[in-house]
Design a protein around this nucleic acid. Structure first.
Lengths: 217, 217
DNA sequence: GTAGTTGTTCAACCGTGATGAATTCTTCGC
DNA sequence: GCGAAGAATTCATCACGGTTGAACAACTAC
């Protein structure tokens, strides 16, 4: 891009772009996308609102930039998948809850999810991310004919935890401890990954259910 | 058409309120809350925008009215809980997917969820609804010491299905058939409701996990 | 110096939801 | 019937949202 040596005015003595980003980050996480207006944000930084557009193109651009510096899920996911497959369900739940429970991580993630629900393009971003970084890899590791179905369902269950505990905050999930959640959700996740297609503990009510699928391996 | 829309009350008794509601319902479901502007909606109905405020107080009031006539989850939930507890997981999944898959029901529900994510008051509504109508009742039916934890986790997983399949539309969940979903998610839900705290199919890797909880009844 | 580039502000635009006053129709007491 | 009360409808306007183009200021390069 910049072929010629640096011409023109140098960035102001305080790096205004970084300042805007920092304040925006704080306020977006605290007040949500709609709660932050460009004018009020500009006033906070002590700058004209047009400058934000100048640097970030638009309000959404600014939000995207904030997300960029706030959310890095990929490395956490990679760590999870590296470990022992047997213990993955418990570890996944524990890691997820731990990460989301600390506000410095949870708030950015929450605002990201909120924004994604409202904005189809952001939703597509998350959708693709989940699929490539998590579901495909997980399916590879568990193997078997219905690996993708199991992996997808697994992610769905994890997503449900995020949705009900953090976005909706519905009780009792919202105030259960990490251990309690691992205890109750862990076995279900194990069933999804490794279990048979129907738990044989009681009569599966064979009538309507197409209870037989590909062999549970 | 009518080139000079006269001021004042219209002759006859056209039920304009119902007309507004019908058009709003359609457009909200198709274009989402933010996609519908009061002016464009008013133009669609052939009416001044102020009339909407007159009838419904505010845009949110209109949206609430649309939800009112579009979403009645309570009766469906009641039916579910009436049936045999043993088959509840499968039936719940099947009912949920069936309902959400038909656009006449699914779109309203989806726009409700979307709105709830953006608006804390609506979120509180859904939160309370889920808790009173579903979790408490379900906990009563399954009984036992950790009934509430199990019920909450159950609802969380169901919510995850909604979130990932319908809101985020992440693959492969988004294009799995009803039967496939019932097959993969059903057993996990059974585990949540009735299962032990750790599935004994393989060595539960006793180290880290607080794998023992209240007896599984 | 002068020209060119970048940072910053100002004023304005257009679209949003909301509100109060003005106007016209319906209804109901007499 | 008449006339007043009230309901339904539009208009003009407000405050506020994000965005934009022109102007100006600061700085670098030649």
């Amino acid at each position: 891009m910049n072929s010629s040596p640096r011409r023109g005015r140098r960035p102001g003595s305080p790096d205004v772009r970084a300042q805007i980003l920092a304040v925006a980050r704080d306020r977006f996480h605290r007040e949500g996308y709609d709660g932050v207006t460009m004018r009020s944000l500009a006033a906070d930084v002590g700058v004209d609102a047009a400058l934000i557009s100048y640097y970030f193109g638009s309000k959404r651009g600014l939000f995207a930039a904030v997300l960029e510096i706030s959310v890095h899920p990929a490395d956490i996911l990679a760590k999870l998948l590296e470990g022992d497959l047997e213990t993955l369900p418990q570890r996944a739940v524990r890691t997820l809850v731990t990460v989301w429970d600390q506000p410095e991580m949870g708030m950015p993630l929450l605002s990201a999810v909120r924004a994604a629900v409202a904005d189809p393009e952001l939703a597509a971003l998350i959708r693709r991310g989940l699929h490539r970084e998590l579901i495909d890899q997980l399916a590879d590791r568990i193997g078997g004919a219905d690996a993708h179905h199991r992996a997808g369902t697994f992610v769905g269950q994890i997503g449900g935890l995020v949705f009900t505990r953090y976005v909706l905050a519905v009780e009792p999930l919202a105030s259960m401890t990490v251990d309690e959640i691992v205890r109750t959700l862990g076995p279900a996740l194990r069933t999804t990954l490794f279990g048979p297609v129907a738990i044989p503990a009681r009569r599966p009510h064979a009538a309507a259910g197409p209870a037989r699928g590909p062999a549970p391996r």
